[in-house]
Design a protein around this nucleic acid. Sequence first.
DNA 1: TTGTAGGCGTTATCAT
DNA 2: ATGATAACGCCTACAA
Lengths: 357, 357
Amino acid sequence: MLAKSTIYEVAQRSGVSTATVSRVMRNGTGFSEATRQRILQVASELGWLPNGSARGLAERRIGIIGLLFPDLGKDAEAESESPLFVDQVIRGAERAATLVGDAVLIASTEGAAGRERARSIAGKVDGLVVTAGSLSKADLASIARSIPVVLVAAQASQRALDAVGADNLGGSRLITEHLLEVHGYRDLAFVAGPAQSPDSIQRFAGFRAALTHWTERSGAELDVPSTPHAHGGFTEAGGARAMAELLDNRERPPRAVVFGNDEMAIGGLSLLRARKLRVPTDVAITGFDDIASARHIRPALTTVRQPMRQLGEEAVRMLLERMGKPEAGQQNLTLPTELEIRRSCGCASTNTTRSSR
Amino acid sequence: MLAKSTIYEVAQRSGVSTATVSRVMRNGTGFSEATRQRILQVASELGWLPNGSARGLAERRIGIIGLLFPDLGKDAEAESESPLFVDQVIRGAERAATLVGDAVLIASTEGAAGRERARSIAGKVDGLVVTAGSLSKADLASIARSIPVVLVAAQASQRALDAVGADNLGGSRLITEHLLEVHGYRDLAFVAGPAQSPDSIQRFAGFRAALTHWTERSGAELDVPSTPHAHGGFTEAGGARAMAELLDNRERPPRAVVFGNDEMAIGGLSLLRARKLRVPTDVAITGFDDIASARHIRPALTTVRQPMRQLGEEAVRMLLERMGKPEAGQQNLTLPTELEIRRSCGCASTNTTRSSR
DNA sequence: TTGTAGGCGTTATCAT
DNA sequence: ATGATAACGCCTACAA
């Protein structure tokens, strides 16, 4: 590896000033073709890479968009699962950023240490996409004072900033209504993810909304729970544990279980199998997300599809817009979710799709 | 959003020089506690974020590691699949980088336009992890002249640089031998991924090695193909097409099909089902990667597990080492793969695991 | 078409 | 314990 060369060397060896080298490298105008060739030649010989920090400093824009998420892979359980939400969001962000020539800087923030880390990252980027749970409200507010920030899948209370999220409530309500209305199930249970997860909270709210609405409409005596029947931390193992808990705490299994995400539903399915309960005949189940495994598992999982990739795309798009006009009004985008009907709910796999909005 | 403030403002309002502010922010020494408090207070009031570009310029190190990969999500087919290789590599890289406080900059490079992009990225990072197929040999060599580079899953010919990869050949050979020796299948077919993919090439080589070895040892007349029987581009749909092609081109289906990855195997499985062929009774199949769906699909897929996440971790670790001592000898790490036996090969699911090395 | 020179926001080396 | 001040490598008016 050669020593790094600078624009000065290139200029000197080309017999021009650094200004001219800069013009050529930035595809500007104001130089002869011969000069251009010569400079390019020298630059290539030297293997010169323009220093991004110097550029960023001079241009007051580095061409990097930051993406913060809660620590990944710390949880051994979650390691094998996929595509985790953030993988898809990252992809979407990368794609949208590439459209304008920017790159994406990713970093996980874990608790206390994450605080300093987040500020350090914030200083290195032109704007920041922050996913739910990766930053405290205070830290977020502090950072948002000096650089554009867009929230992804954040709780409503933090929506003083630009934000994009999926219609978790609507999707969850849709799938619960399906269970209620199409299948006529009455004894439903909800398995939540992490207690503080905004997504999980919204999905439970959708579950409740469906039950409440149904009660009002039909006059039936439906028990509308104020808290989820169990928690499974959004993981497969957690889903199995939650399902076991559900079975152990009652004399009869619930007729249907609405899981907060697909991974927990898959875990729940294994446990039901182990307990010799048939799905959907004895117990119907549903998930949320529509990960690849939901299609492949048997019975195929009825679930709600949320546009994870698009979340990342829209977040970056919104961020770029914000960077363009810092004083524009606050934006808040909710992307629709879709009901994906397969077999685990009891349907004969007509594979219908209904959108939440 | 306030106007961005600088170290000068903080210094002025604190009644100190910028040097002192810098010392405090970098957790250095040489200031009184009172001064420290005052500066921190002012900085917080101002919402000051130290400018990363300026820091990077002054320190000659920005704290960012770059990760280049071939364009994701361009192929609509691949969009739904997961966890794609690079998602996992990204995670591994992020984790290893976080250990030393660095962040990871990701960017896809697509063909010609990717060239300039890659150089731009290279200028913004302290070192670069490059995955197979994201950069031409020439571009790679050029960039590697001025900044540390580590290759992931690259072809051997490019191994003039530090590199880390999985034992594709060994794993593929292992699974093929399993088919040959444990099950006694003789009529095997191989479905490759993209023709230029180093991984695919190595896996086919392992397939051939197993056949060759078997022929030599047993004296049996086994046909050792010089090219794969079909290509499926590593996607589910491609795998289905390749399987159809295989069936249409012969009077009898092959007894077993070794797919270059899990996604193609899953596609192949669907097609076999559609053609009323039973797996593994009529046709046995195997995959490669061990994605989540491989476990969940029925029959569960016998496959080779490769440590994708670890690939990313090791790559970054190697890169950091290289950045530490630029003149050290070249490194080349091959991580072992593991045979994951399930049902699709014809086994009665004993779930054995055998390592490739 | 080309060069000069100041500025971008930090860090780090000397002084004091 | 603190302050001047010179880098760091590039961009960009402003001149020529």
